[in-house]
Simulated assay, not measured.
Amino acid sequence: MDLKGQLDRFKKQQERCQSTLSSINASRAPPSAPSRPSSSSSSSSVPAATSLKPAPPVKFSNDTERLQFINSIRKGPVGAQIKRVIELLFETRQAFTPEQINERCYVDMLSNKAVFDSLRNNPKVYYDGRRFSYKAKHDVKDKKQLLSLIKKYPAGIAAVDLKDAYPNVMDDLQALKASKHIWFLSNADSQEDIAYPNDFKGQIEVDDEFKSLFRDIDIPSDLLDVEKELQKIGLKPVMNTAQRRAAAQIQGVSNKPKQKKKKQEISKRTKLTNAHLPELFQNLNASSSRN
């Protein structure tokens, strides 16, 4: 029976129960009996409140709105139902059976094979054959495990891959950065935060004599000489300076800077179209005064 049929059946049961209660209350009303003489002592011992009052009618809770809400979820798209279940698993980080999921978020996986199969094969969901739980990209549970994971990635690991590990993982990343256990930098290309391990073993002291030898190395100023030195040690230069210079000579490209054109001055014969800008005609006025 579908949900609408269950709702109609529930309303009819309410009507029948209300009618039964009304008939029961009517039968409990005290019948009219002739008054009997009684002594003052007996009348005083019986309180006036002994007369039976009709019980108030029982009101059944109206569950229509809740049933309509559940029906809208179960009749909704498969993708919307999957999203609802994944949000439940992500927020609680607990494992649920299909029956428990139905109780928590009203998604009936047992009656909807498409939802069940999609969740079972979803990369964000772990299914052990009985229960469903959230599956993060990296299985870490606390700050210690997080630091151990970052140390396995010397080239860095994106923060977006760590955000779903556990609820307060971003706070732990900031704490590891503050304690200088990691470097938390922003990638200029993708605008994403990257976590790098701060390997203390790489911090070594360099002898001053070695620094002096490095600074005393004479580097040729001409790129052609630099490329020759690179070729001597078996390295291929990125640019071929000799070939570029030969091509420039063939094409007649001159290295001399181009001369700037002389700025044309305004004379008396110039047709004036910008009379509203007098500062443009200072040279003209000066030459007129000399003449």
Rank of each mutant, 00 (worst) to 15 (best):
L7T: 04
D8Q: 15
R16S: 12
Q18D: 07
S19A: 15
S43F: 09
V58T: 15
K59Q: 07
T64W: 01
R66A: 12
R74V: 10
G76S: 13
G76R: 04
K83Y: 07
R84V: 04
V85E: 01
I86Y: 04
L88P: 00
F90V: 05
T97L: 02
P98W: 03
P98V: 08
P98Y: 01
I101D: 02
I101Y: 02
M109H: 10
N112Y: 05
A114M: 09
V115H: 02
D117L: 10
D117G: 00
R120W: 00
N121K: 12
V140M: 06
D142T: 02
K151E: 13
K152E: 05
Y153K: 08
P154T: 05
G156M: 10
A158P: 00
D164E: 11
M170C: 04
A175P: 00
W183T: 00
F184R: 00
L185C: 09
S186F: 12
P197A: 05
G202I: 06
Q203F: 12
D207Q: 02
E209Y: 13
D218W: 11
E229A: 09
M239K: 15
R244N: 07
A246N: 04
A246E: 14
A246Q: 15
A248S: 06
Q249L: 03
I250Y: 10
N255Q: 13
P257T: 08
I266F: 05
K268P: 03
K268M: 14
K271L: 15
L272H: 04
H276A: 15
L280R: 12
L280T: 02
N283P: 03
L284Y: 05
L284Q: 14
S287D: 13
S287V: 07
